[in-house]
Every structure is written in structure tokens, then in C-alpha cells.
């Protein structure tokens, strides 16, 4: 334990020393800018320039061919006065927060428990298996779970029957279906986020464990006091990414929704799609609603940053 603190203190002091040293080397900054050039050029040409164009489109009565009269904020006000937009917004928040919370904890638990395995081959195999669902498209995964959850013949209901529990109509009960969607989403992506944590665990200094063991720490202690705290930065990234992702939930809903559950599971992006891309030539309004989603994401991110105070992002 003592060692750990010492090490941490040493790193800290070095960081500040290094900082001082670098202050004098600001002239070297131009190499750093050079390193950023491809990224900046890319984002300017293929993201920000199109974004400006999109803002223009969102203020037009856009036609694919012919004139595109400027209509100001009419597209936006149309979207904002549509009840469906707001009900999908509510659904998005419910599903998004569910996925965010469960999806945040699950990969950490799994990564930690994987980390506790001593057999490398086992660790390797399990890690590989957990990643498999992420390789499949939502069409496959969604279809599969709909099958697994069907009444009578679906695997889940067969198991329930064996346990003497009555059949459950998962996909036709809107409130249950919401949870199905949350859990299937977490299930599919857990391996993906797990890899992020595992990769972070690689960079934990082995000396920390060594010294802890000398002090007689149990595996549980190690996990709680060394591994978990070292994952802080990764947790921040995963958290931030998930928050930015919740408003963009689409593929899964598109594949798994049906007539009965739609009012409870349709999300903002399916709204954009249904309004603008399922039918031809209503790009103006669709773009406006997509830009509103961007705006909401910005608010959400700013809000959480206020709340959580990511160190230095």
C-alpha cells in the first residue's frame, strides 16, 4: 500500500516537472499542429462543411429538383410542434438512460471478473466469445432475440415453462419490450466496452499488484483498491461516449419494433427516418429534426460535464 502511494506521488511530481520543462518548448508546438492537420482537414471538409450545408437545407423547402425556397425556421417549428417528436424523445430518454446505466456497469463487472481468471486460455476464449455478438449486424441479433423470446416455442419461454413460470409475451407488451430492448442492447455491446476496460487494465503497473500482495491483500482487495481505481479514465470515456450515443439509437429499434410496442420504443432517430427517409423528398424537415438531435446531444453533454466534471476534456 505504501508503495502505491509513493509511486503515485512520484508520477505526479514528475508530471509537473515535465510540464514546467515543456513550457519552454512551445516553439515545438508547430510539430503538434502538423500532426493535427490531416484530422482537421478531414473534419472541415467532410463534417463541418457538410454541417453548414445541412443547416442551410434545414431552412429550405427542399426539393430534389427545382427551386428550394428559403423558409426560415418553419421546418424546425413543424418538428417541435409534432407530438410524436416529443413522445419519441421521452422514449429515447428512457431507453437511453437504461442502456447507459446498465451498459456502464455490466462491462466493468465482466472485465473485472475476467481479469480474475488465472488460466490464460480460458480468459482468451471467454473474451473472444463475449465479443461475438458485436460482430453480427442488428438484423441478425434482433431477429434472433425476437425468436428466442416468442411465446410457446422460443427458448426463453421454454425454459420458463420448465421452471413452472407462466408464458411471457415479451415483444407484445410495450413495458416489457422496453426492458428487452435495453438488455439486448447491453448484451450486444458488452464485449465491445469490455475490450476497452481490458485494454486499460493492461497498462496498470504490475508493481502495484506485487506490493499489494506482499501486504497480504486478497484478490477482492486488489480488485477494489487497485484495478477499479485505475479504470477511472476509461470509465469517463465510455460514459461520455454512451451519453453521446443515447440519442442516436436506431438500428436496433428499427429491427425490433412492431405495431404494438412502437409507441413506447420509437426513438428520435426512427422519427427522423420515418419522417424523412422512408419516403422520398422530405429532406428539409428530416434534416431539421436530425439537427435538433445534434443540439440535444450538445446540451446533454454539456450538462453531464457540468455534473461530473471530467478532468480536463
Amino acid at each position: 500500500m505504501e508503495n502505491t502511494q509513493q509511486l503515485a506521488a512520484r508520477t505526479l511530481s514528475m508530471k509537473s516537472k515535465l510540464k514546467e520543462q515543456r513550457k519552454g518548448k512551445n516553439k515545438l508546438a508547430w510539430t503538434l499542429y502538423l500532426m493535427l492537420v490531416p484530422t482537421i482537414v478531414y473534419f472541415v471538409i467532410l463534417t463541418y462543411f457538410p454541417l453548414l450545408h445541412a443547416i442551410l437545407i434545414s431552412m429550405q423547402n427542399f426539393h430534389m429538383i427545382g427551386d428550394r425556397p428559403f423558409v426560415g425556421l418553419q421546418n424546425y417549428s413543424q418538428v417541435l410542434s409534432d407530438q410524436t417528436f416529443w413522445s419519441t424523445f421521452g422514449n429515447t430518454l428512457f431507453l437511453g438512460i437504461g442502456i447507459l446505466l446498465i451498459g456502464f456497469v455490466a462491462p466493468i463487472v465482466i472485465a473485472l471478473s475476467l481479469n480474475e481468471l488465472l488460466q490464460t486460455w480460458l480468459k482468451r476464449t471467454i473474451q473472444m466469445i463475449i465479443y461475438i455478438p458485436h460482430l453480427f449486424s442488428w438484423v441478425v441479433v434482433g431477429g434472433l432475440w425476437i425468436y428466442l423470446l416468442t411465446p410457446n416455442t422460443g427458448l426463453v419461454n421454454v425454459v420458463l415453462k420448465l421452471l413452472g413460470i407462466p408464458q411471457v409475451q415479451f415483444m407484445t407488451d410495450p413495458n416489457l419490450a422496453r426492458w428487452v430492448i435495453i438488455l439486448v442492447s447491453v448484451w450486444k455491446d458488452v464485449g465491445y466496452n469490455c475490450i476497452l476496460y481490458l485494454a486499460a487494465m493492461v497498462s496498470i503497473n504490475p508493481a502495484l499488484y506485487e506490493s499489494a500482495r506482499i501486504d497480504g491483500a486478497t484478490r477482492w482487495n486488489e480488485m477494489w483498491h487497485i484495478t477499479l481505481p485505475s479504470l477511472g479514465r476509461t470509465m469517463q470515456v465510455v460514459g461520455l461516449l454512451s451519453i453521446m450515443g443515447i440519442l442516436r439509437l436506431f438500428d436496433q429499434i428499427y429491427v425490433m419494433r412492431n405495431a404494438v410496442i412502437e409507441p413506447k420504443v420509437d426513438v428520435l432517430m426512427t422519427y427522423v427516418f420515418d419522417q424523412g427517409f422512408k419516403q422520398i423528398d422530405s429532406i428539409g424537415q428530416a434534416t431539421a429534426s436530425a439537427l435538433l438531435i445534434l443540439l440535444l446531444s450538445l446540451f446533454l453533454t454539456l450538462f453531464t460535464r457540468r455534473l461530473v466534471r471530467y478532468d480536463d476534456m
Binding site: 426539393h63 419516403q279 423528398d281
Partner: peptide
Amino acid sequence: DLAQLVKSGA
């Protein structure tokens, strides 16, 4: 789709 295309004069 055709109805939309006609409506927008495309």
C-alpha cells in the same frame, strides 16, 4: 413515393 415526387415537381 411517386406521389411525393409529383408533389415536389421532380
